[in-house]
């Protein structure tokens, strides 16, 4: 058993780390939305994804944290940054932000934040102890290949269809 004082110290440390991660994630998200240069936006998005991966690890979902770093911050972001570099956009061709909708979007976004935060506060997760093996590869694998076998297969089909579609869109002429 962990002594109670040590547990308290651990909880406060966890709170500090949680606050830091949340701060980094929010600043990086604002950077994605507000910065002008697409390359910088992409790097801010990588920072945001890494912060969220840290949060997953803090929540105990270690396997998903690794997946997040490998698939999201790795593969998907390489794809996005590759396209940004490929297009090599001049500032005029980047597309700015319309000024009139910014105000309305800001008001609507604020309303959305308050609604979601209210909903999140009213939902109190039950204080259950962390289940045995939560976040482990074994738990996820057995759930994926037994309970969720057919959805898993359908997702793989969707992924193949999306890849074929992406190649079709990006192809210069369909006959050649």
């Amino acid at each position: 058993m962990i002594p109670l004082a040590l547990l308290g110290a651990m909880t406060s440390l966890q709170t500090i780390v949680l606050g830091l991660i949340a701060l980094v994630a929010i600043i990086a998200a604002l950077g994605v939305v507000l910065h002008r240069n697409p390359v910088v936006q992409g790097l801010f998005l990588v920072l945001n994804l890494l912060a969220i991966a840290g949060l997953y690890a803090l929540l105990g979902a270690y396997f998903f944290a690794v997946i997040q770093v490998l698939v999201y911050a790795g593969a998907v972001m390489v794809l996005i940054i590759f396209v940004i570099m490929l297009l090599n956009l001049q500032p005029a061709a980047r597309g700015g932000s319309g000024l009139t909708p910014v105000f309305f979007a800001f008001v609507l976004g604020l309303a959305l934040v308050s609604l979601l935060v209210r909903a999140g506060r009213s939902f109190a997760p039950p204080e259950a102890a962390l289940a045995e093996g939560f976040g482990s590869v074994a738990q996820m694998g057995s759930s994926l290949f037994m309970g969720y076998f057919y959805p898993f297969e359908v997702i793989s089909l969707a992924l193949v269809a999306a890849m074929a579609g992406a190649i079709l869109f990006a192809k210069r002429d369909l006959e050649g």
Partner: peptide, 15 residues
């Protein structure tokens, strides 16, 4: 909400 804000206000497709 920050993501929604970005979708509503920005015009660059990659953004």
């Amino acid at each position: 909400s920050i993501g929604t804000f970005g979708v509503l206000t920005r015009r660059g497709a990659i953004t």
